Simulated assay, not measured.
Amino acid sequence: MPERNDGSGGDGDELAERFEAQRGSLRAAAYRMLGSLSEADDAVQETWLRLGRTDVSGVLNLAAWLRTVVSRVCLDMLRARAARREEFTGHAPEEVWDPAGGDEPEDEAVLADAVGRALLVVLDALGPEERVAFVLHDTFAVPFDQIAPLVGRSPVAAKKLASRARHRVRGTSEASAAVPGGGQRHVVDAFLAAARTGDLDALLGVLAPDVVRRTDPALLPSGRTAVLRGARAVAEEARLLARGARFAGPALVDGAPALVVAPHGRLRLALPLTIEDGRVAAYEVVADPARLARLVVTVLEP
């Protein structure tokens, strides 16, 4: 923790301790808003610097004040990101099978799993104001009259922002109702767990004997086939994808159970699954950026 000049009303060490007590909550909020742990840490550090330049002697609720500041910092970062975002032109073939390039730290991978890859993907597709309004209200129960000044809207408009975001996260009730909850989610989780560990027996147990894997041949490394059939062949290939599966999570894609591979919360692969009789009967690896952009990703509830 850097030293600070105490122009804030109160003992500097005490204020630093109070900030440290809020650091975890601030980091959690910033991560959900930004989808990147390094950016979240930058936002928290900027919040600390702003605290050091501000007289907060009259602030009755420091935690709320800090949350407001970190939210403003995140909103500025999201707006800057939206302004400079470039269209993604595609992956090299080897990146399809190792989409993260190994560059997501372990602590971020754990945090992403706790938050949910699908949620991060959906949040990444929202506008900055929608994302901030949704995270603050639905995750941290901040009232809309406090969110409104942050996003430059009225409380009613802020509520609409969060509502639109919530609809994107959860999808339509019809799509959600079309997916049987417990059984299919169990299969998705079992397939993901087996792929992450490279457990051949577990993969064979969750794949139908005549399972079919399809993918775009233009995105495949040399020597891989666009259509692969049979549990043994598909399982052997899936064992090779254990590293990429580390960045995967369950989701609904166009209303169907799926896995999404999303290092740093950015969608890189989608694997819609066909589940029959408690096993994966087929799946497709979608990696083409144009196709990914058209997919509707929502959260697959536990």
Rank of each mutant, 00 (worst) to 15 (best):
G12K: 05
D13A: 06
A16P: 00
R18S: 12
F19G: 03
E20V: 15
R23E: 13
R23V: 08
S25W: 01
R32W: 02
M33H: 08
E39N: 08
A40L: 10
T47W: 05
L51W: 14
V56S: 06
S57V: 13
G58D: 10
V59R: 11
L60G: 15
N61H: 14
R67P: 04
V69W: 00
S71W: 07
C74E: 05
D76F: 10
A80V: 01
A80W: 00
A82I: 04
R84Y: 05
G90Q: 04
G90L: 04
H91G: 06
H91E: 06
H91R: 13
A92V: 13
E104R: 00
E106M: 09
V110S: 15
A112Y: 03
D113A: 08
V122K: 05
L123N: 02
E129P: 07
H137D: 05
D138K: 02
F140Y: 15
D145I: 14
I147P: 01
L150S: 06
V151N: 01
R153F: 12
V156S: 15
A158M: 08
A158T: 09
A162H: 04
S163F: 09
R166D: 09
V169I: 14
V169C: 07
R170S: 15
A177Y: 14
P180M: 09
G182C: 06
D189V: 14
D189G: 12
D189Y: 05
A195T: 07
A195R: 04
R196F: 08
G198T: 12
D199K: 06
D201A: 15
D201L: 14
D201N: 15
A202K: 07
L204P: 02
V206Y: 04
V206G: 07
L207R: 05
P209E: 06
D210L: 11
D216W: 03
D216H: 06
A218W: 10
T225Q: 14
V227L: 09
A238E: 04
R239C: 03
G244P: 02
A245S: 10
F247E: 02
A248F: 00
D254G: 04
D254R: 01
G255Y: 03
A256G: 11
L259M: 11
L259D: 03
P263V: 00
P263H: 01
G265N: 00
L269C: 12
A270V: 12
A270M: 08
R279Q: 15
R279E: 13
A281H: 15
A282G: 12
Y283L: 11
Y283C: 05
D288V: 00
P289Q: 02
P289V: 01
A290C: 09
A290G: 15
L292A: 04
L295M: 10
L300T: 02
